[in-house]
Design a protein around this nucleic acid. Structure first.
Lengths: 333, 333
DNA sequence: TTGAAAGCGCTAACAG
DNA sequence: CTGTTAGCGCTTTCAA
């Protein structure tokens, strides 16, 4: 293991300016107890040499890295991309860097990835963790400061989440109002907590309307998953389908097209999330708008408070807004 | 500035195991020169205490962080999202973490963001930098090890790029073959190097076919930019339009729809990149497929080589593949 | 107001 | 094979 050649350090500057390293440190940190004239000279020397303090060394001694970590289940999912973007923009505005970790839907690695990422940073945003309730409850305290996105997480941890129960309720009710009585729901990963919320909304629909039949199909979270479910969906003879998210819904639409099933004439399809491209799909997809990048910003704000030792932010739930587009229509009679 | 409470460190483990810190260090690093029995005991103690070495301290002494930085112009752009994902996946496979920095198309901050990010990491992937040639040439040597994506960068720096010249050539030729003789091109940011490549391809088209007229319009890189250009495009009376990228093209399509101009009946529209959603657009968008996530993987591979002190990888150019879909058709007569 | 010295947590050269 | 020691680059008491 060859050690890299050493670089310009604080002593070099100190020596050149004829002062002690301590003084250079004070100047670089804007400590006002330094003689103005001396400070000027040091600053000049530093500029001349192109010196700036090694962030690693500072991190070690100060115990803070000015960096946070964001753990997402899948970087290919537009929802998490948006959340990441929201976090990244606002964190960088506050002078923080962002480390990103993609678990790739591998539940088994969530824990270690989060732990590892957390150790190199000052705090963590855990997005939609897929692990079991017990594991999460045990893990979170070891991760503080941490905030959780799109999953509920007890009372000690700030939560920023979309209310998927309400979202699915609105979408399902919209379909019911259009006359659909046989509705299929393409469920996401069982492990996903938001999937449970969605299921609850379906239960409620069943309770409220005894003339409706809701069929749940195990599917997945990706475009491919949605496309792959097409035959099962057709077999149910449902007149409407709701995707776990827009990706699944869009995949299904594509699959239906390949089977020459028309959307929305033969079957209505709706998604959840309202990803940026839902509106440009063919046909434009009915969905429920989740304010993802704002949620990212709030996640950062909550984490920032924690990092600064301020009181934890309360859990925040965002109610998605139903966005009716052309992929849903009256049920065929 | 309150110093955080100190945590479990190597001396705690050493003390508990009745050995020196050096021995613990050796054990933790798998150094084989330790008595197996002793090693076992140390490992046991470490596990018992839940100890693992502080990465910050290791980074400082070893001079490597096991982290790389990725700088992108815009995290909202699917192309950069995919590149980031490709890098992230492959880097993490090799035990590296990824710091992400979004410049938000702010040319003035590219330099400082890249420099800052580089200082906390072992290497940098600079994606499609927008800064001027001279500035880039001056900056790159201060960033090594660094690899550049989607922009040419002299001979000392590995480059991973899509051949946009070829891509635009194929798209333009495709339109020409469909009978289009009046084609409008929605240019991206002037600063973008790949924009220049695209312009070259248009020049070539003009040279080869003196019956074709190619109009260039300053536009931008986003969906909104494309939508905003709609009236200008209509005013040109062109029968076909090529977007700087798929986002612009999709924006234009949407704008045209709002003006009741039919695609492709009245005007053909094509994009560049073939982002994941190009195929689900309405109508599905003709584009040129850029293998973004593979490019990300190659970018990591090239950077990894550099970090390990191996010889620099040669510049790699990927030729995009024309993907004809329903947004382009024969020119109206 | 400034400098000397200790120490953040770790690794590696050097003795033994 | 193991411990002692020095030092990565910085900040921060403590004394002067």
């Amino acid at each position: 293991m060859t050690r890299p050649p050493r670089t310009l350090n604080i002593s070099d500057v100190a020596e050149r300016a004829g002062v002690s390293p301590a003084t250079v440190s004070r100047v670089m940190n804007g400590n006002p107890t330094v003689d103005p004239e001396l400070a000027r000279r040091v600053r000049e020397t530093a500029a001349e040499l192109g010196y700036s303090a090694n962030p690693l060394a500072r991190s070690l001694v100060l115990g803070r890295t000015q960096t946070i970590a964001v753990v997402v289940p899948n970087l290919a999912n537009p929802t998490f991309q948006e959340i990441l973007r929201g976090i990244s923009r606002s964190a960088s505005r506050d002078g923080f860097h962002v480390l990103v970790a993609d678990t790739n839907e591998t539940v088994a690695e969530e824990r270690s990835l989060a732990t590892e990422a957390r150790r190199r940073t000052d705090g963590l945003v855990l997005c939609a963790p897929r692990m079991g309730e017990a594991e999460l409850t045990a893990l979170l305290p070891t991760l503080t400061p941490v905030v959780v996105v799109n999953r509920d997480a007890g009372h000690d941890v700030p939560v920023i989440a979309a209310d998927y129960r309400s979202a699915l309720h609105d979408v399902a009710q919209h379909l019911y109002d259009l006359g659909h009585r046989r509705i299929v729901y393409l469920a996401g990963v069982r492990a996903s907590a938001t999937n449970t919320q969605r299921a609850e909304a379906l239960d409620e629909l069943r309770r409220r309307h005894n003339d409706v039949s809701v069929i749940e199909i195990d599917c997945g979270v990706s475009f491919q998953d949605g496309a792959g479910a097409v035959d099962t969906v057709i077999a149910t003879r449902a007149t409407a389908a709701i995707g776990f998210n827009d990706l699944v819904a869009l995949g299904l639409v594509n699959g239906l097209r390949s089977r020459s099933v028309r959307v929305p004439d033969d079957i209505s399809v709706a998604g959840l999330d309202d990803i940026p491209f839902a509106q440009f799909a063919s046909p434009p997809l009915t969905s429920a708008t989740v304010p993802t990048s704002e949620m990212g910003e709030h996640a950062w704000a909550a984490l920032h408070r924690l990092i600064e030792g301020r009181e934890a932010a309360p859990a925040m739930f965002f109610r998605p807004r139903l966005q009716v587009r052309e992929s849903t229509a009256r049920a065929p009679r």
